[in-house]
């Protein structure tokens, strides 16, 4: 083996990384007869030993605490995301049920209940007028009529609700602005989120 070949193996020799006994012996026997390679090998060992004596720097005592705190925070954030998906899903289901169920409450067959109410003579009761200005012939008519009007209003509300919300927001203005419309009652889902945030 020549010096160039041996030199590149000297670090591996110093680190005990040569498993092949024959190769190791070849390197050793070359060094027995070569001062330059012996010196090079001594240098490798010397630097290796000096580096291993270095005193490690110490990180701040608070590093471990910061690591733990960050992990906890990230874990909470990830589970909060999961919960908000669950809430959104639940809210969607509830909204669907309400919209379908609301229709059932004012089903035409419910009118039968009002038909059985005692008829009151129109002369003794001053009946209010309906929304279109017509009078009601009887108390029963009044109740049914009012029911119909309420049902219409509910339908209208459902159709107009999204636009209504937008208008409220626009009227509400920016966060810092004062506005009467800020006093409008919020939706239930927002309250739930606030409660969840407070609990954290």
């Amino acid at each position: 083996m020549n010096c160039a070949e041996v030199r590149t193996l000297l670090s591996a020799l110093a680190d005990g990384e040569i498993a092949d006994d024959r190769l190791r012996e070849k390197v050793q026997s070359h060094m027995d007869n070569c001062e330059a390679c012996r010196q090079e090998y001594a240098l490798q060992l010397d630097i290796k030993s000096k580096l291993s004596e270095l005193e490690p720097e110490e990180a701040s005592v608070f590093l471990a605490t910061r690591v733990t705190a960050e992990i906890k925070q990230l874990r909470r954030r990830r589970s909060a995301w999961r919960w908000s998906y669950a809430y959104a899903g639940a809210a969607a289901v509830i909204a669907l049920v309400v919209m379908l169920g609301g229709g059932l409450l004012v089903h035409p067959s419910a009118q039968g209940v009002y038909k059985s109410l005692p008829d009151v003579a129109p002369a003794t009761v001053a009946l209010p007028r309906s929304s279109n200005g017509d009078g009601y012939g009887s108390f029963t008519e009044l109740v049914v009529g009012r029911h119909e009007e309420a049902r219409e209003l509910l339908k209208v509300r459902e159709e107009w609700a999204p636009e209504f919300e937008q208008i409220v927001q626009r009227l509400g203005g920016e966060e810092d602005d004062e506005s009467l419309y800020k006093e409008l009652p919020k939706e239930n889902t927002e309250d739930e989120e606030e409660l969840a945030a407070e609990e954290e």
Binding site: M1, A4, E5, T8, L9, G16, E17, I18, A19, D20
Partner: peptide, 13 residues
Amino acid sequence: MALVLSAELMADR
């Protein structure tokens, strides 16, 4: 020519 230690010759720690 420099001799590069191949994987087979390396000590299998």
